[in-house]
Write a protein that binds this DNA or RNA. Structure first.
Lengths: 204, 204, 204, 204
DNA sequence: CATGAATGAGACTTCATTCAT
DNA sequence: CATGAATGAAGTCTCATTCAT
């Protein structure tokens, strides 16, 4: 009995780790070579599984893409939200949230390319309501923080969509150069310069 | 003699229009379906030519992509630079230059997807020095304007790399959303909001 | 354990036989229709595999050609050399070697066309040093036997290159006619007539 | 009237020279690159005509191949036969005939590759009775000379088929090596060595 | 006759997906 | 569950041939 339970646990763990290995391998290679230039066999090899195994966990390449995104984002976004939940002042909350983003993107540079480019290469993605919604909600959360700050007159009344685009966009560009230049500069420093411009640009 | 001249003219016109038809069809379909999901036969059909004809005008699918981009951009960028050449004040020049960008992007929405996504799907692109250079030079031109403005103490001494990343990044994000949302908002308005943040963020 | 071993054996056998089936089909059709007129799908159909399967075993059509040649020749040439190794008298060794050639060519009439024509149709062939070397070495071996015989004054001092060309050339012509005439005559008989002419033509 | 005649003459000359230019260009390029790697447009360019023009003079690429062969051979073979017609002794006639062959091949190295390889790449060739017949007749002529020599007891009674195969075969091999080695040896010398072996091999 | 732009059939090759083991 | 050999649909590109000028 005990043995059987243990086996199941191990099995689950194995399954879990195999699924996860595939997702991680997928993210890494797709980010590097692009969705269409990434072959299932590349992913399988990197994940140390057989090609066919990929199809035990995912319906298709598209499905893997979408599930990978989910894996990348959902937990992280959620935890970030929770980490700033108790900060009262919306501007401070924003600043913290913002710092968490920089940290997350820095330690997961893949995400940016995933969100901004690769996801759109996956034919199934556009039909996949869930993910579009998830992204939308996340951006909306930042927007809400800004809206709140505006309401409390902590910053000027500004189109918060613009703010979102500035933040995401700058982050992407910065990371892209960072990667291409082999991490030749300090992300934190740049982020600080950026934050200052934004602070001045949005205060009364 | 007259006939001969006419023939040549007609011939050129025909050739020109066929090449152009292929480029236009290519841009349209690639913009809609993405580089990898666009088949040469799709383009050929839309351009009303045989598949093989595409290869009379372009070495490969990649080549068509790159040439299309050139067709979209080169002349436009050049003419924009010339239009602001005579504005003395670098900040004003910058402002005008930005406005021109917004106008251009608004009337050539295809360009956006090309720059921000599709170009990066084309395997040959990364090897194609010319285009990368063209884009790089263009961004550098903006950087120079800022450097000049800093020198003339019109704005704060700011890491202009950060500025470039903000501008490029925001533009890309804005345009991407614009495309994805089926042009549901005014680029000019957004650009104005953006410019204001930047103005405040960089002034003394 | 036993089962596992058996499985591996079966797997190898299957793989082996599939690869071999493709090579055999390739040789047969290429020999019949020529390298350029032979389509991969022809070969695949004859080998009872899908078109794509060919590419699991060979990098390209060129590669199949070169590997086929290797399959046809390497082992055979080696074993023939070994079979005559212990014959002291070079003329006798030559005679035996010679007889082995006739036998080999007779039972593998494809080889001749491969060596003399098809190989030169394969664009990759000229780059493939190994094979050119192998052929060269083989011809050189015959040449050496003759040189030895000449040195021992068993035959007249004759340009051994000429001898090689006579042997190879006659064999090819004979086999060509043999094939075209549906094997209407005895190879052994012809070979004997040929050997006699050669014997008389080269003795003191 | 005179003018008209002249025009027609010129026209004919032009036509003639154009057809001939195409044939010559074809032979040159096919010999160099092989039948299948030679494109009609290559030939047209070298012949200074438009692609379409080739089809005014030849039904197809195959047809050009066959007609080229005809152009290369017919006249030459005929004239060679005539040059030995008056030699009474069949063995001497044979010797002279051989010498003429060597001379012809030496001054028309393209012919060799044409006869031995390229012709067999042309799908239409095998159906083309004429040419096969021509070659066959030519070889038969040699066979007749030998038969005559045997009848006159100038040489041993030997299977003349074997002789033909030796001659054709050796010639082909020799020429093939000659071509592949960039004509690095003297054909006449080799031919002399060959003739001696044959002489000794066939005499009483 | 001459042109050469246009055609389109068909080749090679790739790779997501399946399925027998 | 896992494997990976096999599949075959589909895409890019070539080039002999045609035909309007």
């Amino acid at each position: 009995m005990e043995k059987s339970l243990k086996s199941i646990a191990e099995l689950n763990k194995k399954q879990f780790s195999k699924r996860q290995a595939i997702i991680k391998a997928g993210i890494e290679i797709i980010t590097e070579k692009g969705f269409h230039c990434t072959k299932i066999s590349d992913i399988a090899r990197k994940a140390n599984v057989a090609d066919g195994t990929v199809y035990l966990y995912f319906k298709s390449k598209d499905d893997l893409m979408i599930k990978s995104f989910d894996y990348l984002m959902t937990a992280k976004l959620q935890s970030m939200k929770e980490m700033v939940r108790d900060i009262e002042n919306p501007l401070e909350r924003l600043q913290k949230f913002f710092a968490l983003h920089v940290k997350m993107f820095s330690s997961n540079p893949h995400i940016v390319r995933y969100i901004t480019i690769e996801l759109y290469q996956c034919p199934e993605f556009s039909k996949e309501k869930e993910i579009r919604t998830m992204l939308h909600e996340h951006f909306n959360y930042i927007k809400q923080l800004y809206d709140e700050a505006i309401e409390q007159k902590l910053i000027k009344p500004i189109n918060t969509k613009v703010l979102i685009h500035i933040i995401i966009g700058h982050t992407e560009q910065m990371l892209r150069e960072w990667i291409h230049s082999d991490r030749s500069f300090s992300l934190a420093e740049r982020a600080e310069d950026f934050a200052e411009i934004l602070r001045y640009g949005t205060r009364f």
